[in-house]
Design a protein around this nucleic acid. Structure first.
Length: 642
RNA sequence: GCCGAUGUAGCUCAGGGGUAGAGCGUUUCCUUGGUAAGGAAAAGGUCAGGGGUUCAAUUCCCCUCAUUGGCUCCA
């Protein structure tokens, strides 16, 4: 057979001589396409555009428009960065340099040289210079012995360590210009594609992600085929910064930190306090409808409870050190579950009582590592939208489904559509170590969880080895404005703690039976959720959540009394309104109200006073014209319904 | 916890070996102005804290604390 049949994405089948490369196929289609080809996909495997095709395949040519094309591009950019660094700083040791979602990085051991952001410009310049050589990325298969001898001679311990783990016959080198790297590929045809380069930041990163290993210097960068795209990207980063909850939280006076209070211990300012209260009102309403009971528990407990729960031996590191009272150690609670279990156990339970759903916006304290603290998203004192459901095995699926329904309801209420549902499972190899040693129960509950998810038709991904120690869980992942990933909400199955706390109910046969427990926190913690909402809404809270809903702006102090009257009437209707009595012009008052992101401005002057009406302007500039005060109040109340 | 950066007025930031500056905000006065900034004056800082070098430190060096970009961690 001297020909291969290549199927293109549009379904067209074409015959080419055996050994044809994706680049040659591109040439046969159009020269312009060939110029833009970065790599290719052969039956779902991404390869160099210069790969010889030896059998019938489906082929997709990858360009900058494809995510996989971008990944190839950035991977090659990482090699270009390494080449530039090696030229400028001879003797450095290279570790790894992969593409990431936006750009790429390379981990480098600079030895004694201190590399900093001040050096970026010189490196970028060198990269541009090298890119202009249009150096071809050449792939070469090498034997393990040859690979070892190459990097031994070069003196690169990191590459040698990587090679140790590779099988002979699977090792490839890529060379562009004077630079050769151990690499699986694929790469773009030549460096000339890389036109616009920006190094973004440096960071410390442990070799192989292990904190016991040496810390290397990681350099992050991004590249584009066109300068306009780089500019656009940098602009986008700037825009994202404006949405950062830390910036908005300060500007809108939501929360603050104080050195005397301590790191990771947020103080909620009145605006933040209002938002929290509204969130709680909403949660309590929804949970009441869903059959939850509210409970209250103390912030501390004796050591013995956390030994019983299993938290202490495993999670001591994450708890504040104990305080000794009357010769006994007490801990600040890092979670509410043990307290709730004690409430379940306080009175005897019949199967007729189940399911029992205990809810509490409980305040917890976690000793997060200092380097982990991040605005409101990662703190040391937190209030969870917590609840524990105790149910029978037969009730489990229904209850679990009910919890998921609650999640979806919340997402709709807050307009959350960008999230990933992660179904975290155990790793059977770690039973008895990371996970409680009850293999059948793991299999059974994971199957139940999957069944519920499938039945509800929600989108989710399954991940191994990320379950809680007492059972599988579902996490909702979201991203902060600056792209950091967070678990917003969590929903966990627990078949272990009932045993540890000797929780039981009496079943129909008058026997003792263990309940299954569901831990759930769909609205996350106040801290993380408000942080998330600040970014989600870019500070423009919907009317029902806005700390200030209406501001009344008298045109001059001649109308101060009328403005006061309007403000008082609104306040009496339970609307969060205030009056701006400053001796400023209307334009100034409007501007300040706009900056404060207050949803409605009510402007009152001569006309309004004479007619007893109000003029309404929405945040953003929409003029709603003049209306009766009562009509306006009803409109707000209607929009603000929780 | 680790590597790097940063810390100057309430906020955003400039400055720099000879004990500090702007804009916004605040207060007071003038102005009574109709949909994104009217004018003037004043108050406000142990230049994060501690130690060192120096005739002299906010500036240079060291330590601590905090913030921050990442890494590790995240019940």
């Amino acid at each position: 057979m001297s020909h291969v049949v290549i199927t293109l994405p549009d379904g067209a089948k074409k015959e080419y001589p055996i050994g044809v490369t994706p680049m040659e196929v591109a040439m046969s289609i159009s020269e312009g396409l060939a110029r833009n080809v970065l790599s290719a996909k052969l039956n779902d495997v991404v390869v160099d555009a210069s790969t010889a095709i030896t059998k019938d395949v489906s082929l997709q040519l990858l360009t900058w428009k494809d995510d996989e094309g971008k990944q190839t591009y950035w991977h090659s950019s990482a090699h270009l960065l390494a080449e530039a660094l090696e030229t400028l700083y001879p003797g450095i040791k290279l570790a790894i340099g992969p593409p990431i979602q936006n750009g790429f990085y390379y981990d480098i051991d600079f030895g004694d040289h201190k590399f900093s952001a001040d050096d970026f410009e010189a490196v970028e310049k060198k990269m541009i210079e090298l890119a202009k050589n249009n150096s071809v990325f050449e792939r070469k298969e090498v034997s393990k012995a040859d690979a070892i001898s190459y990097f031994t001679e070069k003196g690169d311990p990191y590459k040698l360590e990587l090679i140790q783990d590779l099988a002979d016959g699977s090792i490839t080198f890529y060379t562009q210009g004077n630079f050769t790297d151990l690499c699986r590929g694929p790469h773009i045809p030549h460096t000339g594609h890389i036109k616009s380069i920006k190094l973004l930041n440096t960071a410390g990163a442990y070799w192989r992600g292990d904190e016991k290993n040496k810390q290397l210097t990681r350099i992050y960068g991004i590249t584009f085929p066109k300068k306009a795209e780089l500019d656009e990207y940098l602009m986008m980063l700037e825009e994202a910064k404006k949405r950062d909850h830390r910036k908005l939280g300060k500007e809108l006076e939501i929360y603050t930190f104080d050195d005397d209070v301590g790191p990771g211990l947020p103080l909620w300012l009145p605006n933040g306090g209002t938002i929290i209260e509204l969130l709680e009102t909403y949660a309590k309403k929804v949970e009441k409808e869903a059959g939850y009971f509210r409970v209250k528990t103390p912030h501390i407990a004796r050591e013995s409870m956390y030994i019983k729960s299993g938290h202490l031996p495993y999670y001591k590191e994450s708890m504040f050190p104990p305080m000794e009272i009357d010769g006994v150690n007490y801990y600040l609670k890092a979670m509410n579950c043990p307290h709730h279990h004690k409430i379940f156990a306080a009175t005897p339970k019949s199967y007729r009582d189940l399911p029992i759903r205990l809810a509490e916006y409980g305040t917890c304290y976690r000793y997060e590592q200092s380097g982990e603290l991040f605005g409101l998203m990662r703190v040391r004192s937190l209030q969870m939208n917590d609840a524990h459901i105790y149910c029978t095995e037969e009730q489990f699926e229904r209850e679990f489904q009910g919890v998921n329904a609650l999640y979806l309801k919340h997402f709709e209420k807050f307009g959350i559509d960008k999230y990933v549902m992660r179904f975290s499972k155990h790793d059977p190899a770690k039973l008895g170590k990371k996970y409680i040693d009850m293999p059948e129960l793991w299999v059974k509950t994971e199957a139940m969880v999957r069944r519920v998810l499938d039945k509800m038709g929600v989108n989710y991904i399954e991940v191994e080895d990320e379950a809680a120690f007492y059972g599988p869980k579902i996490d909702i992942q979201v991203w902060s404005a600056i792209g950091r990933e967070f678990t917003l909400a969590t929903n966990q199955v627990d078949f272990a703690q009932a045993e540890r706390f000797d929780l039981y109910f009496t079943n129909e046969n008058n026997e003792r039976e263990r309940p299954i427990i569901i831990h759930r926190a769909p609205l996350s913690t106040h801290e993380r959720f408000v942080g998330f909402l600040l970014e989600h809404y870019a500070g423009n809270f919907p009317v029902w959540l806005a700390p200030k809903q209406v501001i009344v702006l008298p045109i001059s102090d001649k109308y101060a009394d009328y403005a006061e009257e309007v403000g008082n009437l609104l306040k009496k209707s339970d609307i969060r309104a205030s009056v701006d009595h400053r001796a400023e012009k209307a334009g100034k008052k409007i501007r300040d109200a706009e900056v404060a992101k207050i949803p409605y401005m009510v402007i009152v002057g001569e006309k309004e006073q004479a007619s007893g009406n109000v003029s309404v302007r929405m945040h953003g500039g929409t003029d709603l014209g003049t209306m009766e005060l009562q009509q306006f109040a009803e409109k707000i109340l209607n929009e603000a319904r929780i």
